[in-house]
Design a protein around this nucleic acid. Structure first.
Lengths: 133, 133
DNA sequence: CATTTGTACTATATGTAATAGTACAAATAT
DNA sequence: ATATTTGTACTATTACATATAGTACAAATG
């Protein structure tokens, strides 16, 4: 299990699970059709109450990240079509602004920040290419 | 007052204030030496308990964003030296990863994401140049 | 027909956030 | 000197979200 839960974090455990699964999907650790642990399995592995896992799975299903099939289990959903790029831009703006603010207060701006971001995007591309084949 | 507080948000009010001040500093709405409202002023303007504002100011002082001077008021701190760029990179990583995950689930990846990020960085640079003079 | 698996429900404990009210400490202004 | 300003400290209380515990149901599988 790659999920790393910190019960002392101020981020709720169920949210950490949601974030963890979404992140794993973005990194291709999980791919569409992959089965993820059952509610009870994950609960016992992480020694967390099953209700908490169930809550995370319900959020993930609402977001279209997973699909649940009773008595069969829970699976990573097929990727959806996202034709509305303007919507994506709008929804990404707060997170980009957050980077700007965080970077500013760490003394990183302008060209330096640009370089860091470009490096990072390049790394992701590289990971992606390595997995694709 | 440019701060927009949503008391129904899951983000605590004091945290919204912290984020708002930090964001305003990054955007040069506030600059080093600027005085910000007193605890009681801001509390009455936003109709929020003074204790909540005080908590936000204490967090901001801990982070070195503001400086408080008893009986004089609270001011935006001088910008600090941040020689350790590696530290900055390390601390920015989670936020960058968050963008990656969010973008992935909005159907935005690779070149498309790169373009959006570059556009955004360019906008910030432009804002910055407009203010500098 | 038993098992698996997600779901639903109630009850309870815990922690954090926010409010209310009061008071103190230190610098400034009169 | 003295009153005012402003950040800070403290206690008490309320409200809400999170997490746990325990039980039970629903639907598909084997």
């Amino acid at each position: 299990m790659h999920l790393n839960i910190d019960t002392r974090s101020s981020i709720p455990v169920y949210q950490q699970i949601v974030d963890g699964i979404k992140s794993a999907a973005a990194k291709r650790i999980y791919n569409p059709g992959d089965r993820i642990p059952t509610v009870r399995e994950m609960a016992s592995q992480l020694t967390i109450n099953p209700n908490t896992i169930a809550k995370a799975y319900q959020k993930l299903e609402q977001e279209g990240v997973i699909v649940t099939m009773r008595s069969r289990g829970t699976f990573i959903a097929e990727r959806q079509n996202h034709p509305d790029k303007q919507r994506a831009k709008k929804l990404l703006k707060p997170s980009l602004e957050h980077i700007r603010t965080e970077a500013f207060h760490l003394g990183m701006e302008g060209e330096e920040l640009k370089q860091l971001v470009l490096e990072t995007l390049e790394e992701w591309e590289k990971e992606w290419r390595d997995i694709e084949k």
